[in-house]
Design a binder for these strands. Structure first.
Lengths: 110, 110
DNA sequence: ATTATATATTGCAATATTACGATTAAGGGA
DNA sequence: TCCCTTAATCGTAATATTGCAATATATAAT
């Protein structure tokens, strides 16, 4: 085991969980916050900014890229990362929709 | 390794990641959706509803309880679970604040 | 008391994640 | 061309997660 049984869940549930999972590590949160903080793209000062090894940062960037949240543009010898606005928006929609489920509830029983 | 270096991140980053992490599994999403769908508390029809073993569901419930998102009330021989509104609200605040970071940006460079 | 029902816990196997050193690949500049 | 810089990838060790059978616990009903 150690293997998620994705096939027993809906596409929506798996999608939501995937987005949440990629946000489920402080280094990836820090990377995204750093991209937002900088006005333009961020070009690889992440390693010194966050205190992790270059290989580790690169691995986290890969996960963010795989799910589509960030894009990387090669710029000479370095790579420039920025948010993918479409993916970010669709993640927001999926998450907001879920998180706002409680608005439909008027009472809690316990 | 296999161990998150939490000490190099801020409390806010770790908190946000913790909430996202617990949402990062489709079974836990399904459990929360089931609690929301039912009008009152949900008393352990989760095992048949979701297709996982009883021990596995119990483990996922434990994680949701540990982070405070749900509460369990013993009711006779069964246990009644419901959302903890305070914890849910604080999770929403933390997540919304992060997800809305893009509103401050007027342009993307790539 | 005994049995039935419902949930938690334990123990374990399979797989995933995190982190990092070492290496590789690709440009840029001397 | 030969280095230097930057980032990706590989390999690997340590730890975490997922899932389940078996067992334990606790209450209800007979």
């Amino acid at each position: 085991m150690g293997l998620v049984k994705s096939e027993i869940f809906t596409h929506q549930q798996n999608l939501l969980a995937s987005f949440a999972k990629v946000l489920g590590h402080p280094a990836r949160i820090a990377i995204l916050q750093h991209i937002f903080k900088s006005e333009s793209c961020i070009c690889g000062d992440l390693v010194e900014e966050i205190g992790l090894a270059q290989a580790t940062i690169s691995q986290h960037l890969k996960e963010l890229k795989t799910i589509g949240l960030i894009k990387g543009n090669i710029e000479g010898t370095s790579v420039c990362y920025c948010i993918n606005p479409e993916a970010w928006s669709s993640m927001k929609i999926v998450l907001f929709d879920f998180l706002n489920k409680d608005l439909n509830r008027e009472s809690n029983c316990c």
